[in-house]
Amino acid sequence: MNHIENKSRIDPELRDEMAKQNIFITSLDFIYNWGRRSSVWPMQFGLACCAIEMIAAAAARYDIARFGAELFRASPRQADLMIVAGTVTKKMTPNVVRLYNQMAEPKYVLAMGACAISGGPFIDGYNVLRGIDRFIPVDVYVPGCPPRPEALLYGLMELQKKIDSQTFTKAEWYQKGLKREFPVPELGPNGLIPKFNPEIWQPREQDARKTRYGQTVLTGKKQKAPRLEPVAVPPPPAA
């Protein structure tokens, strides 16, 4: 990732002379990215446990406002960054994808926590989506269960680096015919239809869980119910 530097072809002496007159010259990319990365507005969108750490990051001690990202917007139309903070269940997935579609370009996604990345500790659950990157493209992954606020801030800094590396002329969202609406999955009787968006995610050829456990999902076989001793109920007192 290349940081775009404040370079210009103007004679440095002339530039210094103009700076004395309060005229500053820079490249458009630099000033544009500087503005964008200094005011990343996240969406106020907490799913589970990680949302509490996101709140802690927004509070006085960690203070996400130092990075210009303190303005949590409740509406996706006003947000630049979607922090997927917590477990995405299959029932919630259509809503998450729809919220992403409603955000205005340029938009970024930060997957916060093990659950949003891969399903995390709940990967064996029948109702848990194994990673939000199956349906929407993710820019930054912040691992942890939950990640500390410092980790979230580091993820935000990585995102700022990514923003810095983008150039004005080649930006996707200024190209013609950009299509960044992702199909919203449907919750069917046996999970999501489709199970993933093949444009952005394909299943791996080797599934580590399958090679290790022999199956992708850990399911136990339940035998008969244990025979419990009936509890002796004391007779009701005579009236």
């Binding site: 799913l47 269940t89 709940f122 064996d124 109702n127 848990v128």
Partner: peptide, 10 residues
């Protein structure tokens, strides 16, 4: 049910 994470089943 939007955060049903199958706690008991797991």
């Amino acid at each position: 049910g939007y955060l049903h994470r199958n706690h008991e089943q797991i």
